[in-house]
Write a protein that binds this DNA or RNA. Structure first.
Lengths: 237, 237
DNA sequence: GTGCTCAAGTTAACACCGTTATATTTGTGT
DNA sequence: ACACAAATATAACGGTGTTAACTTGAGCAC
């Protein structure tokens, strides 16, 4: 009979509902603060029922993070259409930051939560599934096009500079909390887009030939997209 | 009698032993993984005894982090002796990174652990106690000396660029774990000092006048050509 | 229909956690 | 010697992740 299939379908559907509920709770309240019982309540089951779908709490988190990594990579892949390697690298950097800032809770789970010992279920190094690998490819393309400064013999190092720099901006802003937690933070954080722009300027200045930088500037002009400037009249101190 | 004083001294000493034991455990195993009972065992007391010294687990963590912040600021302050603002800023950036990399566990507690709602017991904004405020001062000095690029009207933004960039490098390396957890990390991380140097190049290229960069380069040359000539007040560590 | 199977889901329980209320020891002042 | 206060211990509470044991109900052979 087809009842086997139906049961399997129902089982998969419940599994997805659990993931969805858990993601929402984990993201808004933090992993530690969310109990298995709370997740179970949300889908109107008992806590123990979750354990027939996920080995333990970590496996549940693991499933969620895997989905998030794939989403991340998918959004990064959107810049692949850009033909110029420098512009593509630049767009990739911005896309990286944008994802983190638009999905702070996903980002926190992905890069700021100790994942216990489990590796996320993506194929690491596959540039279509792994953000770091994608950045790697962007840098490699730029190097092949001769856009990288010649004294930078190690593209991996350049890639890691991009990765850590962007991670610094994003993670700090994610940690400070967008709103509700407020988190005191006596620091008067400037609009994060300004930071990203400035950081990209620095990254390019340190890694890319002047010719390539000129390409970027020309592109900005062509699009009549001015590099963002800080609102000088409004900023205090 | 003087026994009051002795009792107080003994009490303070126990408090310090608790902090020391907790710091060691928190740092090596992570805050969540360490129980109050484990800390108590370490100092050969019962768990409940801790509660007459600290309101709860968070207060204990709070006390530890406060000490760490002061140590951090103290290490940063060592660069104050450098007279040239650009060189001082450069040294401050390196000292920032060095602290995080030499004390990864402290750094994790300070900047990568949600501190519940409690603020660390340092005077935020006081540059002798607060690393961010110290960076602020370094940037302000550089601006006053005319070393900052004129189009950067907002020194706070520059400070935040430095802060987040360095935090990115350090936190990523701290998260990847120095050793035992291994953390798989398929990424072949380059020596972190290379990253810091390259990042500083980028930071300076994006924020500091060519003249100031020349000062830095000249200093590097002087140091490598005639290392013997360093004055007596050379800053170590 | 009557049993049988077996998986999904439940209830009950375990060991452990942070924390508190209560009891007990210990040292000091008179 | 006795009372008092502080320091510490014992016992317990509610809550956690997780496991063991039981219940239920759909599918299926006869």
């Amino acid at each position: 009979m087809g009842s086997h299939e139906r049961r399997e379908r129902e089982r998969a559907e419940l599994r997805n509902r659990i993931i969805a509920a858990a993601r929402e709770l984990f993201a808004s309240r933090g992993v530690e603060a969310v109990t298995m019982r709370a997740v179970a309540d949300r889908v109107e089951y008992t806590a123990t029922a979750l354990y027939s779908h996920f080995a333990d709490k970590n496996a549940l988190l693991h499933a969620i993070v895997t989905e998030d990594f794939l989403l991340f990579a998918k959004q990064l892949l959107a810049v692949e259409a850009i033909p110029e390697p420098v512009l593509r690298l630049h767009a990739a950097a911005h896309a990286f930051a944008r994802f983190g800032l638009e999905h702070p809770n996903h980002y926190r789970l992905m890069f700021m939560t100790p994942l216990a010992d489990i590796e996320p279920g993506i194929r690491r190094g596959a540039y279509a599934e792994d953000a770091y690998a994608f950045l790697q490819k962007m840098v490699a393309d730029a190097k092949q096009a001769g856009d990288l400064l010649p004294h930078l013999s190690d593209p991996e190092l350049v890639c890691q500079l991009y990765f850590t720099t962007l991670h610094g901006i994003v993670s700090m802003h994610v940690a400070m909390g967008t709103a509700e937690t407020a988190k005191a933070s006596w620091i008067e954080w400037r609009p994060v887009e300004l930071l990203v722009d400035l950081a990209c300027d620095g990254l390019f200045a340190a890694t890319v030939t002047t010719k390539a930088q000129e390409t970027l500037r020309a592109h900005r002009r062509a699009k009549s997209v001015q590099p963002r400037k800080s609102p000088t009249t409004k900023v205090r101190r």
